[in-house]
């Protein structure tokens, strides 16, 4: 009983789970330029202008974890600046909007940082290993 209880509690500790909003079967890679950063609770968002194959520019929202969890994963508040070139590997929102869960972000200095919230149950979640 206690064990199953703990397994259920784990994912609940995240603000909301990955699967509530994003589709793990729809990976996406966004290469573009940062246009806006919202360093805010409960989720940090940044926005990227991405050029499509047709030459059109689309503005994509990228959702990450909360400020505390990003800081623990090696982000700094000024890791991203407007105009920075980034590569975002993530998953599309279920509602089809131009929003992605940024699982991995390649920063301008070449560092790759994890953007998800540990325990959100999404692809690559470090807490998920061997768990429920």
């Amino acid at each position: 009983m206690l064990a199953t209880g703990l397994l259920v509690v784990g994912p609940l500790l995240a603000h909301h789970s990955f699967s509530a909003e994003f589709d793990g079967s729809k990976p996406i890679e966004l290469k573009g330029t940062v246009t806006k950063i919202e360093w805010a609770n409960p989720h940090v968002y940044f926005y990227v202008d991405v050029k499509t194959a047709q030459g059109k520019v689309e503005n994509w929202g990228c959702e990450t974890g909360n400020p505390g969890s990003l800081l623990r994963q090696g982000w700094k508040r000024d890791s991203l600046k407007i105009g920075d070139a980034v590569i975002v590997n993530g998953y599309r929102a279920k509602d089809g909007s131009k929003l992605a869960d940024a699982r991995q972000v390649t920063l301008p200095d070449g560092r790759r940082v994890w953007g998800g919230t540990p325990g959100d149950g999404g692809p690559g979640d470090p807490v998920k290993k061997g768990g429920a």
């Binding site: 805010a40 609770n41 400020p67 505390g68 800081l71």
Partner: peptide, 11 residues
């Protein structure tokens, strides 16, 4: 300041 805080918001 609350929205952008690291600890105050979760507290």
């Amino acid at each position: 300041s609350i929205r952008e805080s690291t600890y105050v918001f979760p507290l």
